[in-house]
Amino acid sequence: MDGDKRRYGFWNPTPTRHTPLEDAQGLFASSMIAALGLALMSSAGLVASGTAGVAFILHYLTGVSFGLYYTVVNIPFYILALKRLGWAFTIKTVIAVSLTSLITEFQPHFVRIESIDPMWTAVLAGILLGFGLLGLYRHRASLGGVGVLAVYLQERFGIRAGLVQLAFDLFVLAAAFFVAAPFIVLCSVVGAVVLNLFLTINHRADRYIAM
C-alpha cells in the first residue's frame, strides 16, 4: 500500500520530475482555463491583471487583436526568463502564452456570452486565471510578463508571487481609468485581488514538490 502511494506521488517526501507528457497536458489545460478567464473578462469589458491587462488596454484603445498585443508585450520578459530561469522555463512559457493568445482569439467562435454581470465575472475570472497560473507555475512555466518576474523573485528571495503581481496590477488598473468606467475598473480591481490572493495562498513550494 505504501509502495503504491509513493509510486503515484502521494505523501512523497522527495521531488518528482514531470514527464514531457505531463508537462504538455499541464500547459494545455492551464492555458485553456486561463483563456476562458480572459474571454469572460473581455465579454464584460474588464481589464485583466499583469501584461494581459496592458494588452487589454491597448486592445480597447486601438481595436487591434488582444492576442497580438499579448504576444508582443511579453517579448521583453522572455529575455528575463531566459537569463534568470533557463531555457526550459522560457520555452514552456512561450508555448503557454502562444496557446493562451490563440485560444482567446478563437474562443468567441465556440463560446458566446449574451448576458454577463461585471462583478460576478470579475470574481469568476479571477479564480479561473488563478487556477491557470497555478497550473503553469507547477509545471515550471507562466503566462509571461510579471509572472516571470514573480516566479523569479519567489524562488530567489522568497517574496510571494501573488504579492509581486498585485503590486504591478495596481499600476495597470490605475491606467484602466483611461479606457473604462469607474465601476468597471472597480470590478477589475476585485478580479485582480481574487486572482492574487488565490496565488498567494496556494502557490507555495512546501505544498507542491513536483518539478
Rank of each mutant, 00 (worst) to 15 (best):
M1K: 14
D2V: 10
P13D: 14
T14L: 13
P15G: 05
R17L: 09
H18G: 07
T19Y: 04
L21N: 08
L21D: 13
L21P: 00
E22N: 05
G26W: 02
L27Y: 07
F28A: 14
I33N: 00
L36Q: 04
L38D: 03
L38R: 00
A39K: 04
A39G: 05
L40C: 03
L40F: 13
S43E: 12
A44K: 02
A44V: 01
G45V: 04
L46A: 05
L46I: 08
T51Q: 03
A52T: 11
G53V: 08
V54E: 04
A55I: 12
L58S: 05
L58F: 14
Y60T: 04
V64W: 14
S65C: 10
F66R: 02
P76Q: 15
F77H: 05
F77L: 11
I79V: 15
L82G: 12
G86S: 12
W87H: 14
A88I: 13
F89C: 08
T90V: 13
I91W: 15
T93L: 11
T93R: 09
V94E: 09
I95D: 14
S101P: 08
T104M: 01
E105M: 10
H109M: 15
V111S: 03
R112N: 10
I113T: 09
M119Q: 06
T121W: 11
A122M: 06
V123G: 11
L124A: 15
A125I: 04
G126A: 10
I127R: 12
L129S: 07
L129D: 03
F131K: 10
L133V: 11
G135Y: 06
H139D: 02
R140T: 01
R140G: 00
S142Y: 07
S142T: 04
L143R: 01
V146Q: 02
G147K: 03
G147T: 02
G147L: 08
A150G: 12
A150D: 09
A150N: 11
Y152K: 04
L153Y: 06
I159P: 02
I159V: 13
R160A: 14
G162R: 01
A167D: 15
F168E: 04
D169E: 14
F171A: 15
A174I: 03
A175M: 06
A176L: 02
F177V: 06
F178L: 04
F178C: 01
V179D: 00
A180Q: 03
F183C: 02
I184Y: 00
I184N: 01
S188M: 06
V189Q: 05
L195D: 08
L197H: 03
F198L: 09
L199H: 05
L199N: 04
I201G: 00
A205I: 13
A205N: 14
R207E: 09
I209E: 09
I209K: 06
A210V: 07
